[in-house]
Design a protein around this nucleic acid. Structure first.
Length: 277
DNA sequence: GCCCAGGTATAAA
DNA sequence: TTTATACATGGG
């Protein structure tokens, strides 16, 4: 699947493999919000993007073909056939079918590596509305003003700060973790931007040198920030879901698309909490 | 007040 | 190596 450029917008025709609500609201990202007219807006790389579902497909407003090819096609993973991946997951692992069949069009976004790392550090022992609030205050306080909205502050910007400088975020004990991560990334001690294709175990070990980064945050960073689809974050919800509804599922069965399966398991178990318990 | 939230560091067994 | 507890904050 890819796009057609028209009237300063991009049209992703068909749209069967891309459901806006399920993609932006499945727990993988924290800076996308639904607008009153049911379109969705989010801030990516300092630009505000708006997407709309129409009868012809998904429209990405106000983007040039050059931006699509260099940035947004990769961000939305448009070259990947998610319908095909869903089929292969159902075949490889029939126990997943209830989740895969009931949730249409989840795509795994390829987020900025630093933003993903920082966001999932903030996510620990926290709830999604509050995670969004802390990230929003982080961007307003330390990101660049892009005209009414703010970019995500890069690691270099935060590396020069002290944890106390983040007190307005009300991030609690996570403030010191954010600063430690920023310093290690800015100094290149953690070579975050070379993790797209290095051996994944080496990447896990390197990420976990950061204070406040354990197995869960490392996996989330690799899956959402480096687009390593074989990564498999396991948190309290996943543990519950994997021990009840999806007790027949093993990571080995899921192979290189484990991360996509994980997103279905997570979102399905959140949408149907009474089935998990 | 109490409990929980897309966990992790730390200390103790 | 595994298990218990503290950690900041805010919504239900």
């Amino acid at each position: 699947m890819n796009y057609i450029s028209e009237n300063g917008c991009a049209l992703i025709s068909g749209g069967g493999g891309f459901d806006l609500k399920n993609t932006f609201d499945c727990g993988q990202c924290f800076r996308w919000e639904e607008n009153p007219d049911s379109s969705w807006s989010g801030i990516v790389r300092g630009k505000k993007l708006t997407l709309r579902s129409t009868d012809r497909g998904i429209i990405i407003e106000n983007v040039t073909p050059g931006e699509m090819d260099s940035l947004w096609s990769g961000y939305f993973d448009l070259d990947e056939d998610y319908d095909e991946i869903r089929s292969s997951l159902r075949t490889a692992c029939p126990a997943l079918s209830c989740a895969v069949d009931s949730i249409d069009g989840i795509r795994i976004l390829s987020q900025e590596p630093w933003e993903a790392l920082c966001s999932f550090i903030i996510s620990q022992n926290n709830n999604i509305p509050r995670i969004k609030g802390i990230i929003s205050r982080l961007c307003e306080g330390f990101g660049d003003d892009c005209g009414g909205y703010y970019s995500f502050p890069d690691a270099q910007r935060l590396a020069g700060l002290e944890p106390e400088d983040l007190s307005d975020l009300r991030a609690g004990f996570r403030a010191k973790y954010i600063i430690d991560a920023a310093r290690r990334v800015a100094s290149d001690e953690v070579k975050l931007y070379s993790m797209y294709d290095r051996p994944i175990d080496e990447c896990r070990t390197e990420l976990m040198k950061i204070k406040g980064v354990g197995a869960k945050v490392a996996e989330c960073t690799l899956l959402y920030g480096l687009h390593r689809l074989e990564a498999f974050p396991v948190d309290v919800w996943m543990k519950k879901a994997m021990s009840t509804l999806f007790s027949d599922v093993t990571i080995e069965q899921l192979g290189q698309h484990a991360g996509i399966a994980q997103q279905y398991i997570f979102h399905y178990s959140r949408l149907n909490p009474e089935l998990v318990q």
